[in-house]
Amino acid sequence: MRYGRGPEVLRDLSFDLPRGSFQFLTGPSGAGKTSLLKLIYLAMKPSSGSISFFGQDTATLPREDLPLLRRRVGVVFQEFKLLNHLSVFDNAALPLRVTGRKRSEYAEDVAELLAWVGLGDRMDANPATLSGGEQQRVAIARAVVAQPEILIADEPTGNVDSDMAMRLLRLFVELNKLGTTIVFATHDLQLVRLLDAPVMTLSNGHLHIRPPRSQRLRPEPLESEVYVEDGPAEDEHE
């Protein structure tokens, strides 16, 4: 995959996302995590190769079929992408609203979801007035409100403190237990270590997939050189 006529950002990638799985996606800044996620959540087309998504090749997918596929995917963006002219409630309800559903049909569900993520008393608030953690939870509520089959989170803990990061991770684990496939992009190794989940590591446009800890034959260290941003190298190994 490349942007315009620029160099290839991703190449020779081949992987599956099993239904109901929880996958970490890691790699240093600029490794192509966001580009890979954009391919998965159908914001971009691959410049070569193919992506089979729910049995459909996205490279040849007609444009008019995109919305139906996108509705099966929830996305938590690194920079939230909340609409500041809408209330917290309207932001969270956006995926339901764009399908043409009436407010009366989804209002109770959205209120319940916002209460679940701890924003029951901020439904009328403007997102710009919320803290980073609260904005992140609005973004998560919006991503899951339509009960997507895949939830993609791009650095969902990148803007919050470690306590909030833990709470958000638990939220994703809960959603995974409810059957949602999760792709959790982060370069926070402490979070990665907390779960027994496969880890996809991107480096220089290539993907290395490490199985869950419980399925590994021998302990396999994470590649410390790609995590130097997070702290001393000795802290990066399992």
Partner: peptide
């Protein structure tokens, strides 16, 4: 930004 958010939320072009 709004259009992207709508698109990625599953909005059709017609919407």
């Amino acid at each position: 930004d709004v259009i992207d958010a709508l698109h990625l939320s599953g909005a059709e072009d017609g919407f």
